[in-house]
Nucleic acid binder design. Structure first.
Lengths: 216, 216
DNA sequence: CCCGTTACGCTACGACCCGTAGCGAAAGAG
DNA sequence: CTCTTTCGCTACGGGTCGTAGCGTAACGGG
């Protein structure tokens, strides 16, 4: 009945702490189950059994399949999404395209990403979770790439922040959308050749928009 | 036991024919259920009840929820996906972007499209069904738009068919992917302003790729 | 060192959905 | 009229969901 004393940032300091090992085991088990069964046939009971954990433990930490899977694939994005500086805008874009494509090529992400996005159309909390755990991290790569390109002089510095933000959002939707669509809908591989062609198209568009008609 | 006489193109000519009215009622009920419940909470029993049809009738015609929903949303693509000639490549692209976006903005398609795509990563037959019922029709618009632009002289005629096909696939993935990502992942509206900005980027890229470096 | 608090594993449960089988009746084709 | 197929209905076993209840285990503070 005694809530944590005022001043403690997040509640519940007393009692048995949650097992961090269980967290890892559960997320690992979730990824393994995604690979073997796919999204639709993955069940909470099965994940619990794989993780060597009681089903109730799952529900104490995640609201359901959606939230659990989001966290499980978000881990992969943490590990595999970096952007080494390759020295040119062209090379940086190709790099991020290929990295994102490699991530999407994994069976776990392939089956899970679109499924949770589909669910998020009816679940505001889930959408926010996806945004903070996955989407924002990808978008950060776009912002970083632009920053580098501007430092190199490959892209002009936009002074109006609202327009700059709109442009960055546009670029992000184009890059991520094209890779996702190519991989999941067209079901064709994103290889070096495709990445070169796509990057050429995108850079040409950026150059044209910058040089050509600024406002309309 | 007597199969249809040889020469009849598709089997089963005798006996009580399937009710076309039931087909329409079922697909209508499926769309209504998608709007109200969303993909995950939609059940076959519920659809059957809404359509005034026995559950067994559903299973006689569709293998399951996936196939049923694909057909239900494919109808919408049939009705609402046309491409009037607006006189310029710019206007044609904006038109197809806005039409596709309007389709994606419907709650039925929003919740269903990504879900079936996610399922299709584990179901080859379903992927083929989506391709023929939805994707190929969209891709046709891209091919039509390019044809018109070439007739107007806005785009060069490519003589190597393989390269032309690759380019068309790339354009298609970029357009459809960007619109889907903007709508479903970023959850931001595709309005006239966004369509203009996106189209400017794409046309700039096409011009740059055509004028600038052809191979690499 | 014990005590309060919380997490954990286990079992059991009602509710729901799945996909199919079996039946008699209905509706066209020949 | 007869044959064939579809239809509506009922019923079923099998599976998943999400929760409740219990006794036990692990940690932090007094």
């Amino acid at each position: 009945m005694t809530p944590p004393p005022p001043g403690s940032p997040s509640g519940a300091r007393t009692g048995r702490p949650r097992s961090a090992a269980a967290d890892r085991a559960i997320l690992d088990a979730t990824r393994a189950a995604l690979v073997e069964l796919g999204w639709s046939k993955l069940t909470m009971g099965d994940v619990a059994a794989r993780a060597g954990v009681a089903k109730t433990t799952l529900y104490r930490r995640w609201a359901g399949k959606n939230a659990l899977v989001v966290d499980a694939v978000a881990d992969l994005f943490d590990e595999h999404l970096e952007l080494p500086d390759r020295g040119s805008l062209q090379a940086d874009i190709e790099g991020v395209v290929l990295r994102f494509a490699a991530l999407l090529d994994r069976p776990e992400t392939k089956t899970a990403l679109m499924a949770v996005v589909a669910e998020s159309t009816r679940d505001e909390a889930l959408r926010e979770r996806i945004r903070s755990a996955i989407v924002d991290r990808q978008k950060g790569l776009v912002l970083l790439g632009r920053e580098r390109a501007q430092a190199r002089g490959e892209l002009p510095r936009e002074d109006e922040p609202a327009a700059a933000a709109r442009t960055a959002d546009l670029i992000f939707d184009v890059i991520a959308g094209a890779v996702v669509h190519r991989t999941l809908v067209s079901a064709e591989p994103v290889d070096g050749e495709w990445a070169r062609g796509f990057t050429a198209l995108l850079i040409g568009g950026l150059a044209g928009a910058a040089a050509g008609l600024p406002g309309r």
